[in-house]
Design a protein around this nucleic acid. Structure first.
Lengths: 248, 248
DNA sequence: CGGACAATTGATCTACCTCAAAATTGGTGG
DNA sequence: CCACCAATTTTGAGGTAGATCAATTGTCCG
């Protein structure tokens, strides 16, 4: 039973927050009345840069984005992938200087919400403040899991693990199902997220395809052997701290 | 001019929070009146385990601790090092199931503070809630920086980087100075934190000693060439989000 | 003085990297 | 509908940072 709010652009945020917590009617209302300026950005465009001192947060309405840091000699580490409903720079509410950059991966629609409005929201609704805090804590939990991968997992384990993670994150907000999900990123992006070269990513992907674990064509990932992929990557979804499934 | 509070065991927490934010007199008072049960634990003892659902937070009063995850075949990834003043499991306030373990590295004195008391505190003092939130965000910022190291830095860059980081963190709470700091961890621990084998850590350390970059004996690290260490590891302390120096 | 743990050394191995070229894909304009 | 371009994927060949395994030495401390 779709309600009017389904057509509100900020509804994606409610859907996201409801995947990790429970919202009251007033809290939902308050979110929908947040002011937001929406813009469409092309692929591979920076949204906020390392060193910036933003006065607003970015809510991803459509498309994918990532956070990353650059080192010398063109080395890049992608820190996280973001999908509709995410506020990838929520931490800027309390950390005033960006210590990394945020950019689009695909064409993306982004709503900018002033810090001021979010501060008012959290002051009026301490429960929402706790939920947003929780969101940033889940962010950190995902960082921890990636650290485990980067430090101690083999290339194939890392790739399998991130596929399981992305699928569950997307499924939780109704953007994936049936072990299929969009994956609109290049093998180079994947390598920069997992600390691997694009060449090696390519070889491991071929091996995974060969074993019938996945199908990956264009921007569509199909996990053909969910249990097996979970097993080889020792995937345990606890760290995603998902509350429940989105209705869709 | 030392005040009575200097001798209160919870003073280490105030000192820590003042390294990343400013506290009002009332907020300081409120922190000092938190209830806490103190215990002394031996080295290499778990405090909280992966999967636990704790009802209290641990404030490290003395000694070092670390967070870590275990994988099959004895693989271990250390996620963070913690020093007096840290609350390594503050996230448990809003993430009810532990997705990693927390254990001592040295003998450690720990104050356990009930979640309930922390919830009351944050409800009465939204400013303190914001500071604690900020603390967890800085935690996440450090995770991000470690991800960069694990994914894209060489072994020597990683080691140099973590030395710079630990020194600044300790200096900020008055536990280090003059480019000297305690480092009561084994080379195996260091390897498990940096995604390296203990053997390789050992070889890189020898190389660093040979170049006159550091002195490391027993549990004492001296950074002999601060600028050089910063340069080779591309260390930029922004991500620590330190507010100011502790008075000492 | 002995026992346990940590650091060190040596030898060998390998997962993954780098560089460079070729093949494929998807989008675009004619 | 096709030809074309740029981006991405794929393949090949060779190289290396760091792993593994197995001693040996050093250190701390009761």
């Amino acid at each position: 039973m779709p309600s009017a709010s389904d057509h509100h652009s900020l509804y994606v945020l409610i859907r996201k927050l409801e995947s990790i917590a429970t919202l009251s009617t007033e809290e939902r209302q308050a979110i929908l009345s947040l002011p937001a300026k929406t813009r469409v950005l092309p692929p591979r465009q920076d949204i906020v840069r390392d060193g910036d001192k933003p006065s607003q947060c970015c809510l991803l309405l459509d498309g994918w984005a990532c956070r990353y840091k650059l080192l010398s000699q063109g080395r890049r580490q992608i820190l996280s992938f973001h999908v509709p409903g995410d506020i990838p720079d929520l931490q800027s509410l309390h950390l005033h200087t960006m210590d990394h950059s945020l950019g689009t991966l695909t064409e993306a629609t982004i709503a900018f919400i002033p810090h001021e409005s979010l501060r008012e929201l959290t002051a009026r609704f301490p429960g929402l403040a706790a939920i947003l805090w929780r969101d940033t804590l889940i962010d950190a939990a995902i960082f921890r899991e990636w650290m485990v991968g980067l430090g101690r997992r083999s290339a194939s384990e890392r790739i399998a693990h991130v596929f399981c993670e992305m699928y569950l994150k997307l499924e939780a907000v109704g953007l994936a199902g049936d072990h299929r999900c969009p994956l609109p990123i290049t093998q180079t992006d994947l390598g920069d997220a997992l600390g691997l070269s694009n060449v090696h990513v390519n070889r491991v992907l071929q091996e995974m395809r060969g074993k019938g674990l996945i199908t990956l064509r264009g921007s569509a990932l199909v996990i053909e052997a969910w249990d097996e992929l979970n097993r080889v990557s020792e995937f345990d979804p606890t760290y995603l701290h998902l509350e429940k499934r989105a209705a869709g």
